[in-house]
Each structure stands twice: as C-alpha cells, then as structure tokens.
Amino acid sequence: MNSNLWRLLKDPGAAIGIALLVAVVVVAALAPVLYPQDPWSMAGRPFLPPFTDPQFPLGTDMMGRDIAAGLAYGARVSLIVGIVSTACAIVLGVTLGGIAGYYGGLADDALMRVTEFFQTIPTFIFALVMVAILSPSILSIILAIGIVSWPPVARLVRAEFASLRGREFVQAAIALGESDRHIILRQILPNTLSPVLVMGSLMVASAILTEAAISFLGLGDPNMMSWGYMIGASRTVIRQAWWMSFFPGLVIVLVVLMINLVGEGLNDVLNPRLARKGRA
C-alpha cells in the first residue's frame, strides 16, 4: 500500500489534488480556531466587496457575514456529507452486492431487482424528495445521498464477487471448510476494495455536488453553513455582489476537480494491478 501511495504521489494530478484536499481538510478542521465567531454572525457591513477590508478578505454577504468564515465552515459540511454519505453508500452497496454476488440465485435476483428499482429513479430528484419528506437536516441529507448512491456500488461489487467466487483461491477456501462469513470478509472483500475505493473517491465528489445542489435549492440544513447554501442565498444578488456566489462556487469546482484527479490517480495505481492479477 505504501508503494501505491508513493506511486499516487508521483502522478502530478493526484499529487496536486491530495495537497489541495489536505489543505481543505485542515481548514475545515481548524475552522473554529481560524474563525472563532460563528459563520452566521453578522460581523461586518453588508455587501462588503472582497479585498477591501483585511478583516474580511473575501468580503461579506447581504447580512454582513464573513464569506471566508462561511467557506471554512462550509468545508466541514461538504466533507462530512461527502465522506459519510459515501461511506453509507459503500457499506450498503458492498453488503447487498456482496450477498447477491456471493450467493447468486434467488438472493441475487431479488437484490438486483431492488437495485434496478432504485436506479430507475432519477437520483437527484429522489434525494430531494427524501430530504423534503424527512425534513432538511444534515442527517437527512447524508441519508438521502447515501440511499441514492449505493446501487452502482452494489452492481460493481456484485460483479466482482461473482467473478471472484469462481476463482480457485475462493474455491480452495470453500473446500477447506472456511465459513461463508470468513470467505466473504477475508478472502473476497479485500480483493474488491481497489475498484470500490476508486468508485468511492469519485462518489465523494458527486455527494459534495449533490449536497451543494440540495442546499442551493433551499433544502439544506438551515443551521449549517454550506457552500451550496451560500450560492443559493446569493444567487438573487449575483448582479450586485458577484463575490458572494463566486467564491463558494470556485471552491466547489476546485474540490470536485481535485477529488476527481485523486480518483483517477487511484484508478491508475490500483486497477492495472487488479487487471494483471487476473492473468494466469
């Protein structure tokens, strides 16, 4: 794994991506230290343009709230939603896909019909409806994104499991009398993790985008400052105060781009190896 990390860092795109993401994580973690005041506090003069007041380098919004503080606190929401919802989707997708792929037959048919059912619903609309029904909060957003994102994971894991199940080392494990749980968790699962990891990294990016879109539409957690919310709230004043939507928009674009770079780097590092393994 260490050699993989090293190879990842040698990919310039991935290296830049990791550097920027680490920076975002640090800012998110240190937000309460960097900006001890709540991001909602109306700290300055409303509509203060950026680069005019050193206290508010990125300006303030229509209620005098610090844009920079909003970005820092928004990073927490974006990262939490991105990572936790992806984790939910992966746990759900790996569990269902693994069971379907390992046992096959009726379990496979049933689970894949369920998966297809979820896949036929437009994911964003589905997430939006769920958030609306559950009433908007960070938990309901995480849950909604998690629930709409698992089907591709399930399909991927199912395919991997189905093919690995026929591999001789798994057959050997069955013949040795290892339990199903042990075979699934110890023998097969570790071998499916590379593609899942790659998919997961890209899912984090799309979860961040989905959260931003939900918040943009006003269905975000009303008590959490988020990038999507900042854009949504400033959309109406975009002609008077471009900076209010520009900076959060820029941050979303950058973070999503960086995650994609890292994801592609991971793909290059992890998946050829998997492909090579397949050859006898």
Binding site: R167, E168, Q171, A172, Q187, N191, K277, A280
Partner: peptide, 9 residues
C-alpha cells in the same frame, strides 16, 4: 498456480 492463492493474503 496464479489464481489459486489469494493475492492479498
């Protein structure tokens, strides 16, 4: 001999 051992074990 390549497929019969778990590459991660």
């Amino acid at each position: 001999p390549y497929a019969s051992l778990n590459p991660r074990h």
